[in-house]
Design a binder for these strands. Sequence first.
DNA 1: AAGCCGCTTCGATTCCGGTTGAATCCCGGA
DNA 2: TCCGGGATTCAACCGGAATCGAAGCGGCTT
Lengths: 240, 240
Amino acid sequence: MLEGMTTKDSRAAGLARLAALAADETRAACLLALLDGRAWTAGELARHCGVAASTLSEHLGKLVAGGLLAEERQGRHRYVRLADARVAHLVEDLAAQVAPGAAERPRTLRQAGAGSAMARGRTCYDHLAGRLGIALTDALTARGLLRQDTGFALTDAGLRWFGAAGIDLDRRGRRPLARACLDWTERRPHLAGVAGAALCRHALRARWCVRIGSERAVKVTETGERALYDLLGIESEALR
Amino acid sequence: MLEGMTTKDSRAAGLARLAALAADETRAACLLALLDGRAWTAGELARHCGVAASTLSEHLGKLVAGGLLAEERQGRHRYVRLADARVAHLVEDLAAQVAPGAAERPRTLRQAGAGSAMARGRTCYDHLAGRLGIALTDALTARGLLRQDTGFALTDAGLRWFGAAGIDLDRRGRRPLARACLDWTERRPHLAGVAGAALCRHALRARWCVRIGSERAVKVTETGERALYDLLGIESEALR
DNA sequence: AAGCCGCTTCGATTCCGGTTGAATCCCGGA
DNA sequence: TCCGGGATTCAACCGGAATCGAAGCGGCTT
């Protein structure tokens, strides 16, 4: 009984303190916005969340102090981004747990347009998600490059494929090479981890896809359609 | 801008509502306690958390309403447990994110004893953790039954091993066969998912290990030591 | 140099939610 | 039928936290 108490309490207190950071709607909106992997200024976030700049400043202070956000000051701007991939993973998981309950349907045409652009393809922290992410993951799996039936890992053929495609995989860190990330539009797992990030970086650099608007959505280019078909046999219909 | 707002807001509100459930120290203590995978009565939890029964009753109401807990009423008792493996996974991840900051050391002998029993072996929801969990995971990996270098998945040899050992793997559900769960004493990933649960169930049924006390800790039996050595070449030193 | 703009600090206000004891409900045992 | 005990409801209290505007600070622009 007693022996566990102080330890338990400190663990519980830590968990509660961490959860409290996300337990405010404004801060939650920040975390979700920052899931695009980019750095936002305090002002952008304030406008995005619809609160006063002073309010948001206080929230950023808490999120940074809590280790969820990293900040970088440039002149009179304060840029913040998610602290690391671990935090991004955590936010993703929390968001995924929420999604099943909130089955939303678009109400206006513009909403539908924006929604389906996001559903077609977007970044999820540092990897690709949406139908584009799913199509990549499915294609890798169908070609025996990624194994999903017994867990989630690249195969040896998969390692060779990344090498042949000229996509470097940094295997030094302790971050897993391949990890499943649950998609909230498709409700299916897609490739994250070192390989997912490398694939996304390569896709943007080679202009297989480009960011559209100022949000997380991306659009596959014609170059990209050709490359995806040549390399993985992905039909462009799968991306519409 | 506007088109995303209502959607974003509802997602943010959902996330905030979910996080708020864990943002209270008493509720967090409940979630951590329930990580042992068993069902607790309201009274047990109240004593465990050191709050009045009425207080805990309200907390349980919220956790159940929020979908984190499942309840089962038997007579005048109210049993609660984590709703499902998804929730357990979420709590694990949150706890793991906290751990790095809270490097605690035991202060009394009894604490040290209890702590090291937990560190040797324990259940983590429905699979094995602690040094026992790590030893199993390492042994499976060393024998080529589990692949960790490119993700986290069983190999074909691994599938055969489970079959040969007479451990049934239910491959129908959408729950992954193998998943990494980060250990908070060892700071290393260990086997969770369907395979982890099946292995744990088999270990308890075959009395490779038994629960000690009323907590999550388990102890490897002599039968278990022999079986682990014969099946996976695990030296008993790795479990001390 | 003057002015603008982004951000932060501060104080005041408001409101939400955790806690408790007392009263009540309900089940099981005598 | 009556009691004991586990669990819940209720009303009241309290503390903490979110919010905002005003004022101040510091960098960038003209």
